[in-house]
Design a protein around this nucleic acid. Structure first.
Lengths: 198, 198
DNA sequence: GTAAAAACAGACTATTTGGTTGGTATGCAA
DNA sequence: TTGCATACCAACCAAATAGTCTGTTTTTAC
């Protein structure tokens, strides 16, 4: 694998595990047995390095785990339920779970680095737009109640997911997952279409 | 005000704004026009310093904003609604909002410092216990549906609050708040007692 | 085969970090 | 006045930090 790819991969891994400010460039280079020369040949700075990781790896990761799985013409509430369930299940089985990568970075860079925050918020927006679209389509197709505010529902879903991933990092993640999913279904039941027809 | 109090107050302020690892002891001392000697006379280390801040300031802050307001014999769903609304309102009006302090620290120290994580998780547990108790009492008093899983509801509430506070740090916090509250009420409507009696 | 460009090595710098140490001013009790 | 603990100062230290610079190897182009 190319050096640049390896740098980005272990970069995301370490930044996720230890945080951006607590992970030095030397840490990453030591892990890969590379030198400063190699790093600064491929990247202008640590910040440039991280931004490329965001765009190349993080954005794709969010897309494949949270956006692509809810695309389709089925009931969006079922799709989102399964999507969240799957995403949390991998977190439960992962020895080292540090919460939602995107959410962690959001709180780490908030108020500290505007440039990076801009790139992170772009990913958040993409997720939000896709959620809203999916919900609106579901409403159009008769899966959701006519009175549902799709923007509000999307915000609520994103919030609760970010939050539960933070809570899951402490003790008993599987219990947290189970409890969360049960109340998510409860909420979904309250916004699904009332079956008055046929 | 005593030196030790001043150190703790501006410590929490800066740690919240810049993060623990990105705030040096010198930063705090410069702000207060104090010397290293003063700091290490009152505290053993930066970690000890932070733990004292957690126990003395953070714990009380969480208690006064998220725990104490929901105590009482009224409808817990109304109390929690008002509590969240108030907490988010101060965040909206605060120029510099960095999200929920507790949630931010949780994601910053997760996997990095077990000792600090233990102290933070203690506060989370206190909040959780109080939420569960409040909900159970509300169920007993006929405000909640008999089938509600109070532990699950508490987890769901904590998750969504942590998450929305993270989302509120970006653009349009007041819109995020409005949307969140509308769906919180929707969720509450689905777990409140069905008024079959009287 | 050779020259040029790409890909890397590793020593170096300037600054910042948490923490230490020896000293000093102040207040209070005997 | 003496003795001593509290509260603080400021110079100092070793380690770590992001980034630079000079060089060397490897690949590519022709």
């Amino acid at each position: 694998m190319a050096t640049m790819q390896r740098l980005q991969n272990t970069g995301l891994e370490l930044f996720y595990a230890q945080g951006y400010y607590d992970t030095s460039v030397d840490d990453i280079l030591k892990r890969l047995d590379l030198s400063k020369g190699a790093f600064y040949y491929h990247f202008d700075s640590k910040e440039d390095y991280f931004i490329q990781i965001i765009q190349n790896l993080l954005a794709r990761k969010i897309y494949s785990t949270l956006i692509e799985p809810i695309e389709g013409h089925d009931n969006p509430l079922s799709l989102i339920t399964k999507c969240f369930d799957d995403a949390m299940e991998t977190a439960v089985h992962n020895e080292m779970d540090y919460g939602c990568i995107l959410s962690n970075f959001l709180s780490e860079f908030n108020g500290k680095n505007e440039v990076i925050m801009h790139h992170l918020n772009e990913i958040v927006t993409v997720w939000e737009v896709n959620l809203v679209t999916t919900l609106q389509k579901g409403k159009f197709n008769g899966y959701l109640d006519r009175h549902v505010d799709c923007e509000a529902a999307a915000t609520f879903l994103m919030s609760s997911y970010f939050g539960v991933r933070t809570l899951m990092t402490s003790a008993t993640p599987s219990a947290k997952k189970y409890r969360f999913m049960s109340q998510l279904r409860q909420y979904f039941k309250s916004i699904e279409a009332k079956h008055v027809n046929s």
